[in-house]
Amino acid sequence: MATDHSRVAARFMISPAVLLLLGWMIIPLSMTIYFSFLNYNLLSPGMEEWIGFTNYEYFLTDPAFFAALGNTLLLVGGVLLITIVGGIGLALLLDQPMWGQGIVRILVIAPFFVMPTVSALVWKNMFMNPVNGLFAHAAKALGFAPFDFFAHAPLFSIIMIVAWQWLPFATLIMLTALQSLDQEQLEAAKMDGARKFNRFFHITLPHMSRAITVVILIQTIFLLSIFAEILVTTNGGPGYASTNITYLVYAQSLLQFDVGGGSAGGIVAVILANIVAFFLMRMIGKNLET
């Protein structure tokens, strides 16, 4: 619905964004691919040589890779599960008539404003520390031995921290979706004799499917590259117990200066992300139409 003149203008207007993103994607990515075939360490410059798939072999057969892959999936899946279920619950609660709804909403949203490094440090030291953390105090008060979260359940602890950060987002999306639900539909269901439980599963939940899709899509994008929380709490340890792919590649390239190995890892991460993206995009394609 437009003229040739406006179509030409449109192409002109869209090109800076497209070209920049294309450059951002293609230039570094092709360099990464090239490096991944080299024996290239920043500590020994000028010694680069072509070694084919050796870096990939090392990376993919390294037990650390499988640990990191599993951790990545657990991290993403765990946080998604907690935030979606918790988000729906919180949204249902916040949607009830109450006094001071606006303030409660701000309280609930607040964790989203906290930068990852801050929330990780605060949780690690002031809550989960086995000596002086609040949880330790609470355990002692109840007569239990304090639990050393990061020594015994590092990944679980990180999942909790990240879930706390993303719960506000999920809640907000769910709440917005909930508020757009046509009340007459619920009233019609009431007239048709559906009980509260059935109304939720047959009307409210299907109405929120789009919102759930959005939460999954956007959170997955961010959760796949969780980094700072791991860096400031566990440094990926103990061992590789809390290392995800992102952290593994970071450690390999910027801590061990193994550019070749790190690049191979980066490419593997890109491929894995593409697999996830493929399924996500298909899901959105179905759910985000219209």
């Binding site: 951002w24 994607m25 570094p28 590259s225 890109v270 993206a277």
Partner: peptide
Amino acid sequence: MLSTKMLPPVGVLIP
């Protein structure tokens, strides 16, 4: 464009 957002930053970190 959205999918470039899914490009893991580690994939382009070194370059």
